[in-house]
Nucleic acid binder design. Structure first.
Lengths: 194, 194
DNA sequence: AGTGAATGAATGAATTATTCACTCATATTC
DNA sequence: GAATATGAGTGAATAATTCATTCATTCACT
């Protein structure tokens, strides 16, 4: 195999993964059929099997990269610049952004009854609530500066995150007629209006 | 058939419907297996078929009563007592209450790709956004009294409802670790703190 | 002409809705 | 109160269906 065709192979692999991520996020682990992935990737039904051994392997690959992505994102929360208000706005923005398929996939996997062994193993070092501690710190700071409402920071961050995740999931299915609020609306949950 | 056994039959039918509603709300239309319904209702696998022709018939029955229930609830919004703040709190309470399976089922049906014909027909006269108009009116009133924040009432009610529905769905699956906020937290989206 | 990429119809292993032969408790009849 | 009838209830067996995976074939390119 030439260098060139190897690169083409990689690109195609990425194309399939990208399509699969979108479909998984939208339809869940069981709801996703190989034919849907093929359609989304604009390839034939059989071709995925020249690039991945099985559906499970695709999922495993996706979970692998999604965990990395998510953990990076969590780490970022602690180092965000700006006022506490700015920072919780950024968090909302991050979670609500349209193409946030990775985070949604992680949700799907967490909710799913039985996932492939390999996936279960990977999930062990993923803690979606890792963000909680960092967020609570931001909230404490915001309370000191008087920007934020009173209340237990841990509890408030839990509620804030949960609300955002609810909206995120809602987006995945795209229901006719609903229109999601943006970050500026959501930060009202914590911020005192001036 | 005696009066007595007829009553027993009705009760059993209700028992099955109640179990099915819970399971459907929790696992979705495809995810729900007849065996799960039987287990939830604490009856044998076969018995449901002495009370309903098919899984589809159970679903159809459930959708029928859920539409009625939902429409009643929507109508109630217009006639709620109390200040605007009280009323949007009641709306949140209504949507977020734990055993709100009917509303969740309606969501499931709306999202589902293909539902039984009969169900599709029933869904035609269900408008989840019917509540929107009534809510917008409440918001206008709250803006006049100065309780609520400024902004387009229609848009604000859409955002408020969407956020609540997101939380509602989240609850259906019961994810380890998440803790949902209550109505008093949610009304902050619209109400100015004193 | 030879090579690997790509197709999409065919396969067959699960999965699961539905049926049915049977049991058992209770009601009815004499 | 014994004999019989009824129909609710069971759960293993059956029948459909679904869908991941394979593979014979075509295509594109050198």
């Amino acid at each position: 195999m030439t260098i060139d065709s190897e690169q083409i192979r990689d690109e195609r692999r990425e194309q399939i993964k990208k399509a699969a991520l979108k479909v998984f996020a939208q339809h869940g682990l069981i709801g996703t059929k190989m034919s849907m992935i093929a359609k989304e990737a604009k390839i034939s039904d059989g071709l995925s099997y020249r690039y991945f051994k099985s559906k499970d392997e695709i999922l495993t690959e996706l979970v692998k990269s999604s965990i990395d992505g998510a953990n990076e994102a969590f780490a970022l929360v602690g180092t965000m610049p700006g006022t506490p208000t700015d920072r919780i706005r950024m968090i909302a923005q991050e979670i609500l952004q349209e193409d946030n398929h990775a985070f949604i996939l992680m949700q799907q996997v967490m909710v799913a009854r039985d996932v492939p062994d390999e996936v279960a193993r990977l999930m062990e070092d993923y803690d979606p609530l890792a963000m909680l501690g960092a967020l609570a710190t931001i909230i404490e700071e915001g309370q000191r500066t008087g920007e934020f409402i009173d209340g237990d920071p841990r509890e408030l961050s839990m509620w804030y995150l949960t609300t955002l995740v609810g909206l995120m999931n809602l987006h995945a299915v795209e229901i006719e007629g609903y229109r999601r609020p943006g970050p500026d609306f959501m930060i009202r949950l914590l911020v005192k209006p001036i």
